[in-house]
């Protein structure tokens, strides 16, 4: 397994009791659903938030029937910035763990032709994330506890021709998370950056991704839960992506620019 960097200050602190509530932002994606199942099974109450929340009602009944879990569907739009503060303040009780899963990926070629597509990726993946984390970080800082988990991407580790709008927004998000970690670590708030590589989801449908490098959403969920418990800073999933990205990041730019990646 990969040697994960431990946060020395909080490495031994106890995990939350099982009753702590969890907010999942962008609850419709396959990864989000796997996370919801994982925590519902363990008995945590859940807030499931996404656009067109009516569609989440099926998940709410599913989690209740399968695990007897308490879950609530909430309307949330990552780019309706002005709604974010009120959205978060209205949650009662306030969630102990916030997991930000939403993201938007369009074909790079289409984004190259159509600025609106590029802009939408930058907004949802970066500005939207920064906007909703604003009230969350403040509230958790004031309470002196809480966990923020951001699902960023290995695509943010280095800009590539095939997905640089998505990648740069995720790079921004990764930097935002590390900044928040730096700010909040002293206040007892844990910030976890998750960088999935290939995941077998609707997002990667039709891409013939190599099996050994492709994680199932359930595995991503398990890895995240473990990383939360151990208060890790950065999680690559599957773990080998840490090394793949290490290599990719270290290719000299003179060579890198000639590669088709």
């Amino acid at each position: 397994m990969a040697p994960e960097t431990q946060n020395p200050k909080h490495g031994t602190q106890n995990p939350k009791p099982e009753t702590s509530s969890i907010l999942i932002l962008g609850a419709k994606s396959d990864i989000a659903r796997a996370i919801a199942h994982h925590y519902a099974q363990a008995g945590h109450p859940l807030y499931l938030a996404a656009r067109n929340a009516a569609r989440l009602e099926a998940d709410v009944s599913d989690l209740k029937i399968r695990y007897g879990a308490e879950a609530q569907a909430l309307e949330f739009d990552a780019t309706a910035y002005e709604s974010h503060a009120a959205f978060y303040a209205a949650l009662d009780p306030q969630p102990e763990i916030v997991i930000l899963v939403f993201g938007l990926l369009s074909e790079q070629e289409e984004a190259d032709k159509d600025w609106a597509k590029a802009q939408a990726m930058l907004e949802a993946n970066f500005v939207g994330a920064a906007s909703i984390l604003h009230p969350i970080a403040n509230a958790m800082e004031a309470r002196g506890q809480g966990t923020i988990v951001g699902i960023s991407s290995v695509a943010g580790d280095r800009g590539r021709a095939s997905n640089y709008h998505y990648g740069s927004a995720k790079a921004g998000f990764t930097a935002l998370l590390s900044g928040l970690r730096n700010r909040l670590a002293k206040k007892g708030v844990h910030v976890l950056t998750v960088k999935p590589g290939f995941v077998d989801t609707a997002m990667t449908e039709g891409m013939d991704t190599p099996a050994p490098l492709t994680a199932k959403p359930e595995q991503v969920a398990r890895d995240i839960a473990k990383a939360i418990k151990k208060r890790k800073n950065t999680l690559y999933t599957k773990w080998m992506w840490r090394y793949i990205m290490l290599i990719i990041k270290n290719i000299p730019e003179g060579i890198f620019k000639k590669l088709s990646l």
């Binding site: 396959d30 099926a58 998940d59 009944s61 599913d62 029937i65 399968r66 609707a202």
Partner: peptide, 9 residues
């Protein structure tokens, strides 16, 4: 397969 929820029981 993506539609795999229990709706009512």
């Amino acid at each position: 397969l993506p539609l795999n929820r229990f709706l009512a029981f």
